[in-house]
Design a protein around this nucleic acid. Sequence first.
DNA 1: TTGTAGGCGTTATCAG
DNA 2: CTGATAACGCCTACAA
Lengths: 336, 336
Amino acid sequence: MKDVAALASVSNMTVSNVVNGRAGTVGEETRRRVERAMAELGFHPNFGARALRAQHSRTLGFLLRDESEAFLGDPFTSLMIAGVGDVLRDYDRMLLIQTVRSDGEPERLLDPVLRSQIDGAFVYTSGAPELRRWYIDRLGEIGLPFVVFDEILDSSDTLSVRGAERDAASALTTHLLEQGHERIAFIAAREPWVVLEQRRLGHVDALHGAGIDPSSELYLREATDWQPEIGGQMTRELMRLDRPPTAIMGGSDALAVGALQALAELDIRVPEDVAVTGYDDANYAAWVRPALTTVHVPVYEMGRVAAELLLAEIEGRPLDARQIVLPLQLVVRDST
Amino acid sequence: MKDVAALASVSNMTVSNVVNGRAGTVGEETRRRVERAMAELGFHPNFGARALRAQHSRTLGFLLRDESEAFLGDPFTSLMIAGVGDVLRDYDRMLLIQTVRSDGEPERLLDPVLRSQIDGAFVYTSGAPELRRWYIDRLGEIGLPFVVFDEILDSSDTLSVRGAERDAASALTTHLLEQGHERIAFIAAREPWVVLEQRRLGHVDALHGAGIDPSSELYLREATDWQPEIGGQMTRELMRLDRPPTAIMGGSDALAVGALQALAELDIRVPEDVAVTGYDDANYAAWVRPALTTVHVPVYEMGRVAAELLLAEIEGRPLDARQIVLPLQLVVRDST
DNA sequence: TTGTAGGCGTTATCAG
DNA sequence: CTGATAACGCCTACAA
C-alpha cells in the first residue's frame, strides 16, 4: 500500500480511502491518480491486515457437523450451502466451511469463531440435542451473529430457519387418508435427526385427526442409514405382516425408492395395491417409475433465506422475524 | 494474549511459544501455568493477526466458476468439494469457497489469492478455454500453489487432477460394439465442457477402432442443458430417423434417464430393442428402471486426491506426479 | 529458558 | 480534502 501511496504521491490514508470507496473524503482528481497507481502496481489490500485492524473479515462461516463421512456430499447439505453461497456472492462476502467429524472434538467447530476469523456463522449440526444446544449456547455467549438450521427454538432470539416439516408430513398423510388408506406405514433410519422426528409427529397428527391409532408394527426404524436397500428390507418386512399396510411413507426419497423396488420384486403394483410416498423431493423422485409422490423441501431456498437473515442482522438492518419457518409443498405424482 | 501473559506472569513471547507448541523452548512448569491461564481466559489466537504476521492462513480456497445459478448445488461439484473438505479437515485446514457467476467479473475469482487470504487454491472453472487458460497463467504468475481439475495440460508443472474420460468413453462404446451394436448415437448438451469433448473423442476412438465411421445424424447436441427432458427430446428425434440407432449413449446420466423415459413412452424395450448408457454414475443411475449402464466418475476421490496433492506441495513434501489421471470404471447394469 | 523491541499492512482518529 | 500517528495481536530476531 505504501508503494501505491508513494507512486501517487499521497499518503497511506488516502489510498485506504480510495480502496474502501469512502465517499466524499477524497478529491476526484486524487482518486484517479490513486486508482491508476493501484492498477499499475496490481495492488490488492492484504486480507490479514484488514481483518486484524478492522475486526471483521467479510467472511461468514458454515459450521457443519454430520454423522457421515462425505457429509458435504449429501445433496441436502450442499444445496443449502449453495443457497448460502449464492447470496453471499451477491453481497460480496466469502464463505468459509468448517466441519468436524462426529468422532472428533466438537469444540473445533467453533474455532473460526473463537479466532475471529468470521463475522457470522451458519450452524448445521446433527447429533444429540445436548450438543446442538451446547453449540447454540456457546455461540450466544460469544456474541457473534449466527443462524441455526432446523432447530426448533421457542422464546429465544436466536436466528433460525427451518421447514414446516410437521405440517407437511401431516398433509402428506392426509393425502393418503383421503385416498382411503387406513393402514399407513412409516419407515425411517434410526439416526437421530430432529427433522425426522417432526415428520413422524406430523404423520401421527394426521392419523389422530382421522381417529386412527398409529400402530407400532407399522412404524419401522431399524435401519442404520438412508440407502434404498434398507427401505427395501423394511418394506419386505411390512408386507409379511398379517395385515400389511396399503400405503408406505418413506422418511426420505431414497427409502421410498427402495420400497418401490421391493414392491416391484414382490409383484405388488404401485399405487394400485400399495401406495408409496417419499420425502425431500430429490431430483430422482421424478425420475423413478412410478414417479414418487413426495414433499418438496426447499433446501436451497432455506440457505438463501438464512443468508439474507444473517446479513441483515450483521449489517444492522431491521428483521421482520428472527425465526423463519418455510412452508413445504406436497408434490403428488404417480406413486399414490 | 497479553492478558494471558499477565495472568501467568510471563511475557507475550512465552505465551506464543506455548500456543504454537514450540518444543524445548519453554519450561514444563511454565507451560502448565500458561495453559491454565489460557483456559481460564478462554484464549484463542486471533486469526487476522496471525495471518498478517505469519503470511499464511491455514486456509485453502476452492475457486469455482460455473454457468448455472445454483452451481454449488450440482452434485458433481459438491462431491468434489466434499472430498477436498474431508482431507483438509484431517490436515486441520479450512476451506474458503469463492465463486463467480458466468455473467460477473471473472477476475473476482482470484480475490482471495490476491489478498493473501489463502495458502493455495483448487480451481474448477467452466467456460471458454481462453478464460480457463487465463486463470492458470495468472495463478502461475502470482506463484501461489494451486491444482486445477479436469484440465488437460501437457508439458507443464501445474498441478492437476482429472479422470481418464476418453479411455472410459472408449471402453463404454466398445462394450456396446461387443453387444453387436453398430449404429450408436451420442447425445449431449451444447454447453462447452472439456470433459464432454473427451467423452466424445473416446466414443469416436472406439468406433474408428471397429472400422465404423461416426455418423453425424447420430451425434445430437442441440440442447441447452442436462435435464432429462432434453435427453427425451433428442431420443425421440433419433428414433424418427430412417435408420434409428440401436444404442444411445448419454453424455450424462440425466440425459440417459430422459432417453429411458422417452423410449418407454414409445414402447421401445430397453435393452432388447435399444440399449442406453449414461455417464457419471450418479446415485439414481442404479435406481431407475432399467438400471443404467454407465461410467463411474470418482468425483469425491478426485477432490481427495487434489487436496493431498496440493497439501504435499504446500508442505514441501515430494510429489510422485504433478498431473494425476484417475481411471474411471465401467459399470454395466441392465440398460445394455 | 525467558524477555524486549520492532514491524507485518491496514484503518481510526484527529489535526491541518 | 489530506496526512501524521498510533494501534490492532501476533511472531521473528536478538538479547539477557
